[in-house]
Each structure stands twice: as C-alpha cells, then as structure tokens.
C-alpha cells in the first residue's frame, strides 16, 4: 500500500515493527515501531512515558514526510 500511495505522488511514512520487511518490499520512508503487538506503544511503560514514546515515533514519522529519500530508507 505504501508503494501505491507513493506511486500516486503522496509521500507515506510507514511505521512498522517489521522494518526490514518493509524495506525489502520497497516502502520508501520507514520508521521502526516498538513491537508487533504494540507498534506505537509499550504497555511496560507508565502511561505518561508511553504517550511520549508514541508522540516521538509519530513526530519522527511526520518529519520523514519532509525528508527527501532516494529509495527504501529507515528513518529512525
């Protein structure tokens, strides 16, 4: 899906725990998520810390949308 969106000219920041898979499939802007069962979260953290983790991941992803890339790249 990331590739179809990009092919249509819309940049995509893709957050996934399986970043290597995302890269081999050819997603262009990849951000490494926390874990498969909680890609943008961590139940082991206190709620405030978890919110910060999530916000940082999403901020990184949004910044990836502003980043020029040549091909599949992991941006964090």
């Amino acid at each position: 899906m990331a590739k179809e969106f990009e092919a249509a000219g819309i940049p995509v920041a893709y957050i996934t725990a399986l970043d290597a898979l995302g890269q081999s499939v050819g997603a262009n802007r990849i951000v490494r998520g926390k874990a498969i069962t909680n890609v943008v979260g961590d139940p082991n953290l206190r709620p405030a810390e978890e919110r910060k983790l999530r916000k940082d991941l999403v901020r990184t992803a949004l910044e990836a949308l502003q980043t020029p890339v040549e091909g599949p790249s992991i941006l964090a």
Partner: peptide
C-alpha cells in the same frame, strides 16, 4: 494494491498531502 488505489482517489479528493501508515 487495489485498496490503496481506491484510497488514493478519496485521499486526493480530500487534499491529503501526506500519509501516516501503521501496521504490526
């Protein structure tokens, strides 16, 4: 691929400039 192509039509009509995509 078809899902994404169908979504693109909606997203463009709604003037989306960037996508945050999440998966497991």
């Amino acid at each position: 691929r078809r899902f994404a192509q169908e979504m693109v039509k909606e997203l463009k009509a709604r003037e989306v400039e960037g996508i945050l995509l999440t998966s497991s």
